[in-house]
């Protein structure tokens, strides 16, 4: 049985851990609110961009002469996966889920004889994936969300992707991120960036329908200034940055949600542990007192 002092020390240490986890929970909750607002206020742009691109893309008559960002390279030999993870840990299953999906996906692609390259955003993803896919990781981008994701960062990631695409380093680019569903649930979402898929935001049936409506109904009526293809040449890279930005914002909001839930759990567990230790401590103390009494009484009786 541990001594009273040992128990006291453990209780204090668990208490200070609990203080830390509950503080982290509070910080995550405050950041979550901001991140959620940011993700929501960025939605109008992404939606309108999608609508516009949908209607321009639908009106391109000659797909062959369209920019390769829309038409693709005609091959699917080399895949680039952009994996959005966090820089810091202590956020529950957030990174594990993304890493698991990535592992399965990469294995499936490799067994199909494809070549896979990984571009990782966030330190955690790098440390989780480098054991298995060290030689496939072309780079890791860190500190993208300090204190919050900015459009400049998204644009620089996007322009890097475009440059690689122009250099023929890959044929298909997919970004995978945790989509913010609610503070308690995040969903691993893959989204194809290149070539542009009409249902890029594919998960929302509404979005898809809206894009199609815009594409079918309005395409014939619009005038373009300058020509469709020139607009596309500007719109496509732009859309790429927007989609990356959107993924970053969603991922950031998800991270805060996941951390808040994880820290809430940890705080509760610490509370349970403290209760258990306290009962243990009281029992031990009682046992000591009883033993001492017995010793005194039996000593007195012996006289």
């Amino acid at each position: 049985m541990p001594s009273l002092k040992e128990l006291r020390v453990r209780i204090t240490s668990v208490k200070s851990t609990q203080r830390i986890t509950s503080a982290m929970k509070m910080v995550a909750a405050a950041k979550l609110r901001r991140a959620q607002e940011q993700a929501e206020s960025a939605r109008p742009y992404a939606e309108r961009m999608e609508r516009m691109l949908g209607s321009v893309a639908a009106s391109v008559s000659d797909v062959a002469s369209a920019p390769p960002l829309l038409a693709g390279t005609g091959k699917d030999d080399v895949h680039l996966l952009v994996v959005m993870t966090t820089d810091r840990g202590l956020c529950g299953g957030f990174n594990t889920n993304i890493a698991r999906w990535t592992r399965q996906h990469v294995r499936a692609l490799v067994s199909d004889g494809k070549q896979v390259k990984l571009l990782i955003v966030g330190r955690k993803g790098q440390s989780m994936l480098r054991m298995e896919f060290g030689e496939r990781i072309i780079d890791t981008i860190e500190d993208t969300a300090k204190p919050a994701p900015t459009f400049e960062t998204a644009a620089s990631i996007a322009s890097r992707i475009t440059t690689m695409y122009d250099d023929g380093e890959f044929d298909i680019c997919t970004i995978v991120y945790n989509r913010f569903e609610s503070a308690l649930s995040q969903i691993v979402t893959p989204q194809q960036l290149i070539p542009f898929a009409q249902d890029a935001s594919g998960d929302d049936a509404n979005d898809e329908k809206a894009a199609k409506d815009a594409g079918a109904g309005a395409s014939a009526a619009y005038e373009y200034e300058p020509e469709e293809n020139e607009i596309l040449a500007e719109l496509l890279p732009r859309n790429l940055s927007i989609q990356v930005f959107r993924a970053m914002l969603e991922s950031f909001a998800s991270e805060q949600g996941a951390r808040m839930a994880a820290m809430d759990n940890a705080t509760r567990n610490a509370g349970d542990l403290i209760d258990k230790l306290t009962i243990n401590y009281n029992r031990t103390r009682q046992a000591f007192i009883t033993r001492e009494l017995i010793e005194i009484i039996s000593g007195a009786e012996a006289l």
């Binding site: 516009m52 309005a218 619009y222 005038e223 373009y224 200034e225 300058p226 607009i231």
Partner: peptide
């Protein structure tokens, strides 16, 4: 009443 258009 402007005619529909998309421009850079």
């Amino acid at each position: 009443g402007h005619s529909p258009m998309i421009s850079t």
